[in-house]
Design a protein around this nucleic acid. Structure first.
Lengths: 214, 214
DNA sequence: ATTGAGGTTTATGTATACACTGAGGGCATC
DNA sequence: GATGCCCTCAGTGTATACATAAACCTCAAT
């Protein structure tokens, strides 16, 4: 693996997992020593992170981990609703119906998976991930897909602030199933509406269970 | 000015102005000699350009200028309609009405500017730019604003393919005036509709006057 | 003649040395 | 004692040297 990619992966993971708190200054020399690579790949990694918005170049003097607060969450979901709503609608118009029928059936069975313990939860996340991928593939719009990808990074970061309990995951599975079903039916407006509902519920849950980070 | 910023600005300009055709391989040494800086800032510039989507890292061997074709234009406008429609609606909800009333009045007077020759056209573009900025500021959503900024780069590139004649600019000014008016009225749905109309007309004009690049 | 293997070459990937700028602290002066 | 100036230092910005890998060309063998 290239050193710059390693530096990027580690730093990104550290930021997303909140091991590097917002406001932390990432000095090039310091990080290059910590990661065991030279300054050059660290520089490249910091550049990529800044382009993604995970870090911000603080006026020539150091790169700092971007802050993400509750107001950001509202902004984030505002854009997310716009993009994913459109994506769901496009998927309903253009997607291969059998793909989403299968996903729909699998999502309906998800509550069984969630009755078991943590390892099963991983399978559930993988299933939701497959729905995301199927939508990405169905929309046939690389710009929209790219915009959603860059959003998801920030969403993963925010999600770490909330506690995903079993009851919420069950509800989320049902909401995802509704989205998959609407797409399988080829109904753009329904797909968009189902997405809107899901995102509003997610946001409510997120805000309700938000735990201030220590 | 920093060397890396200069390299970035020059390369970006060269790509947008079609002086560097899609598919052109940007070798680091070659570009560093051409731009009179060393490889390091060129590398950084190429990284930023790739993050924006103007170039693509071609599997370890060189960075190539991204292709942009007619199908891309459809995808581009599909996303643009989604984002700018939402942005106009939000601006109508949250914007300072006097700002957009002033812009509306100025846009109504734009046809007078366009009767004159080229230097006046520059003023018109500046006026439209101010409308964009006013919307950006009004939406109070940095993620949405960022998404629109990254889109505009590609749009500028596409726009160079079309010939902006005086009649189209006059029509566009009226469409922009309608958007500003809707926002000033505080009517989100009207603002979104006006934006949709404007973008559809822009796209039609673009496709109609598209000149294959030599 | 065509194909494969190996060497050469040229590009990128990485490390490091040097330059420069901005900040912070200490000292001197008012 | 306070304030202003200078010196030092730390950290980024740039250049360059070196490592490495992939592609192309050549030569030979089938």
């Amino acid at each position: 693996m290239r050193a710059s990619e390693k530096a990027y992966a580690v730093l990104r993971e550290d930021i997303i997992e909140w091991r590097l708190a917002p406001g932390t200054v990432l000095a090039e020399v310091e990080q290059s020593e910590r990661l065991g690579v030279s300054r050059t790949p660290v520089r490249e990694a910091l550049g990529r992170l800044s382009a993604e918005g995970l870090t911000t170049a603080a006026g020539g003097r150091g790169v700092v981990v971007t802050d993400i607060s509750l107001e950001d969450i509202d902004e984030l979901f505002e854009l997310r609703e716009t993009l994913e709503g459109k994506a769901a609608a496009l998927a309903a118009e253009r997607g291969e119906r059998p793909v989403f029928e299968r996903l729909h059936a699998e999502l309906l069975r998800a509550p069984e998976m969630l009755n078991d313990s943590d390892p099963a939860r991983h399978d559930y996340y993988a299933l939701v991930g497959r729905l995301d991928e199927a939508i990405d593939a169905a929309i046939c719009n690389s710009y929209l897909a790219q915009a959603m990808r860059s959003l998801r990074v920030h969403l993963v970061r925010v999600r770490r602030l909330a506690a995903d309990d079993a009851s919420r995951l069950n509800a989320a599975a049902a909401e995802h199933a509704a989205i998959a079903e609407a797409i399988a039916l080829g109904d753009p407006r329904l797909a968009e509406a189902a997405t809107t509902v899901h995102l509003h519920r997610s946001l409510s849950h997120l805000k309700a269970t938000h735990t201030p980070h220590t």
